[in-house]
Design a protein around this nucleic acid. Sequence first.
DNA 1: TCCGAGAAGTTGATAAGTCAACTTTAGAGG
DNA 2: CCTCTAAAGTTGACTTATCAACTTCTCGGA
Lengths: 160, 160
Amino acid sequence: MAETLEPDEWDLWDTWMRARRLLDRELDRGLQRDHGISKAEFSVLVTLWRASGREMRVGDLVDSLGWEKSRVSHQLTRMENRGFVAQTQAGPSGRRTRIGLTATGCRIVQDAVLGHAGNIRRYFLDSLTPEQAATIRAWSEQIIDRIEPPHGETTDAGAA
Amino acid sequence: MAETLEPDEWDLWDTWMRARRLLDRELDRGLQRDHGISKAEFSVLVTLWRASGREMRVGDLVDSLGWEKSRVSHQLTRMENRGFVAQTQAGPSGRRTRIGLTATGCRIVQDAVLGHAGNIRRYFLDSLTPEQAATIRAWSEQIIDRIEPPHGETTDAGAA
DNA sequence: TCCGAGAAGTTGATAAGTCAACTTTAGAGG
DNA sequence: CCTCTAAAGTTGACTTATCAACTTCTCGGA
């Protein structure tokens, strides 16, 4: 800690952050404009869509998305109101145990995936050679490992 | 538009997004824990700090940050209340024309930059060989160019 | 000088995300 | 069968972000 970054390191960081921000904004707008959903809604929809039976446990959704569970809960409430998802198995109380796509949700996600995939390709993948892709993947995995090691290893030891 | 992604392309995308999310979360927490400020506050502080005279026009701040101007305005109001920034030149109405760091803001950002730089190094730069860094930089620049071309060129023509 | 268009900045309503506290459920141990 | 504990899920209050509408400035042309 308490060490400084060289100017070109700062510059790399800033450039990377800027690219991310622009990319996110562009993808968000595409989703909103073409399909009327937010990126958050899209994430929930595809996650459910990929699941076998198009439904899953709330907790598994939390893990897949990597969100706070309260965020998932609020999001599901809103999406239930919009008619995109529904409980597939109601617990004794008014509580969700399993949640799944409705016909509407299913239809929307199928459309949205196509458009979104196109945008991801256009903005993200097309600017990428295979070697670059490999680099990005490897480096992303390093970051993930470093911050969230596969299982109960300590976070900052080991790599000393 | 309307084309699909291969499984390994989706996987690259997911991995990259996950890495970003974890990295952001980690950096946010560091800033909050060690310096009591949010990432948004930090961004404003460093941007002003790097400016000559430690002050700038609101509109330039908007451009540098790449945020919506209303977001910047709200953020500045909060930060004025916390005593981090202040108007350096008051317009005729209660309006900000130029905004700058206060002594407090200046002190905080100096501390925070050190800690934050350390975290950026630890999580982001350390996992990077020089070639990887070059790749990431080049690719980030491509994304920026593609979405926000330097000056009034059309967004999607040209690269055909 | 006066007008009008557009830039610059603010505001308030609403949506989304975070945090901590709470309730219900499920399971292990007695 | 009971109880205790932890996990799962929800809730409400609070913070932050977005959107659209608004006000105020600036500046070029009649």
